[in-house]
């Protein structure tokens, strides 16, 4: 029995010695190392792997001591179409080589040879669809799906101005200058609770060329907690009545609102949870 215990200790010692060896530690190092084959491998046949032997897995280290971090290889590409977030047709762009090769495969780009550069010099003459800048299509998609809620006061009288809309846009993480906003012709005045939640349309012009129509609704708000309007669940998932009847033509052109994915039972549970939360908040405010 004495022998048994001694052997167990020795096993542990042996394991510790093995674990400290450099070939096990090397596997945890994370960096790039440059390595060269000692015996060069033969060329492969078409649609077949090269026949590698054991001698081909012997390497010589070229660079080991000062490893460099991995950098994405870049490449220059000449675009033939409008590509979202990348560039306009006829533009020479430096991008990640992987995406660049994909674009060339899809016939959206070519290599920037001098012949190609002459061909795509005037994108307007070739009748290719174009926007004023590379990010414009993305912003137009986001704006067309957006429903803008403009919070206005319930106590103080007001008339809607462009800067009110600008602040509402900024709250929704979209930055719009004053000159890009055009309001409906009829003035909107308040406070008026018949307006609350009704839809009207604001047009935004990007770079003074593209125009987008944005659904917008007015919400009344007060600093007095008890006089606030009741909370509505998911107002941005429901269609609302129009404020002006003239806008029926515009409404037909706009993309439909995405419906809610919840069941009725799930919605009721959600509402009950939120009401409990809001009650708690109000109680805390009263105590303070």
């Amino acid at each position: 029995m004495k022998m048994n215990s001694a052997s167990g200790k020795q096993l542990l010692q042996l394991f510790q010695v093995v674990a400290k060896r450099p070939f096990l530690q090397q596997s945890f190092r994370t960096a790039t190392y440059i390595v060269e084959r000692k015996y060069p491998a033969p060329l492969a046949k078409i649609h077949k792997y090269p026949s590698l032997r054991r001698r081909h897995q012997v390497f010589n280290t070229v660079q080991d001591k000062n490893p460099t971090p991995y950098v994405r290889p870049l490449m220059n590409v000449l675009l033939t179409e409008y590509v979202e977030n990348v560039g306009q047709p006829g533009e020479c762009v430096e991008i990640w080589a992987k995406t660049g090769r994909e674009l060339i495969l899809k016939h959206k780009a070519v290599y920037p040879t001098p012949e190609n550069k002459e061909k795509y010099r005037d994108a307007t003459a070739l009748n290719i669809m174009n926007y004023s800048s590379r990010y414009v299509k993305n912003t137009m998609d986001i704006l067309s799906k957006l429903i803008l809620f403009i919070t206005m006061n319930k106590d103080v009288p007001w008339t809607l101005e462009p800067w009110h809309v600008r602040v509402a846009f900024r709250k929704a993480h979209i930055i719009v200058p004053d000159h890009a906003i055009t309001l409906p012709k009829n003035p909107i005045k308040g406070p008026d609770l018949t307006l609350n939640g009704k839809e009207f349309y604001v047009t935004v012009t990007i770079n003074k060329t593209e125009q987008v129509i944005v659904r917008s609704r007015i919400v009344h708000w007060t600093s007095k907690v008890e006089e606030r309007l009741p909370w509505v669940p998911f107002p941005f998932k429901k269609p609302a009545p129009l404020l002006f009847e003239e806008d029926k033509v515009i409404e037909a052109q706009l993309p439909a609102i995405e419906p809610l994915k919840m069941n009725e039972d799930e919605l009721e549970d959600f509402i009950a949870k939120m009401k409990l939360k809001s009650q708690g908040k109000i109680l805390v405010k009263k105590i303070l």
Binding site: S132, S133, R134, Y135, V136, N138, T139, I142, V167, R170, H173, I174, I175, V176, P177, A180, V204, I206, N207
Partner: peptide
């Protein structure tokens, strides 16, 4: 950002001058 209208969370944070930040 390049354009005059843009979605702020896709670009670098805008650094406002002190006066405009207060005005906002």
């Amino acid at each position: 950002p390049i354009d005059d209208v843009f979605v702020s969370y896709k670009f670098r944070f805008t650094r406002y001058p002190f006066a405009t930040a207060v005005e906002n």
